[in-house]
């Protein structure tokens, strides 16, 4: 592989950080979910990179399971958002703060 594997890992680190910045700063909960997807994709990229570094299929198997878990997570999360929006006008993170203490 002519492109050094470190470049893939650097790109993955950047992608993960952008996603976590979105989770920390955005208040629209749907956008927060999308940023979680960005972080999952960064991790998937790392797994595939190490799969090719170590010449082992196991990394790609893990990515397959991550995809399934991500799909399940989005289904349940959007269900929760729909349930919240049925009771109150919007679902930003500031509106759902009853347990804040």
């Amino acid at each position: 592989m002519t492109v050094d594997d470190s470049w893939y890992l650097l790109l993955s680190a950047l992608l993960f950080t952008i996603g976590s910045l979105g989770v920390l700063t955005r208040r629209n909960s749907i956008v927060v979910f999308m940023c979680v997807e960005l972080m999952l994709n960064a991790v998937n990229l790392t797994f595939v990179t190490f799969s090719s570094v170590l010449d082992d299929i196991a990394g790609q198997v893990v990515v397959f399971f991550v995809l399934v878990v991500a799909a399940a997570e989005v289904v349940v999360g959007l269900g929760i958002i729909v349930a919240i929006l049925r009771r109150r006008p919007n679902a930003t993170a500031d509106d759902v703060s009853l347990l804040r203490g």
């Binding site: 890992l9 190490f50 170590l54 010449d55 299929i57 196991a58």
Partner: peptide, 15 residues
């Protein structure tokens, strides 16, 4: 991790 990785290669199956 790439530099110092000493793990066994192709444990599950080779690509």
């Amino acid at each position: 991790a790439v530099q110092v990785s000493t793990g066994a290669r192709s444990v599950t199956a080779s690509l």
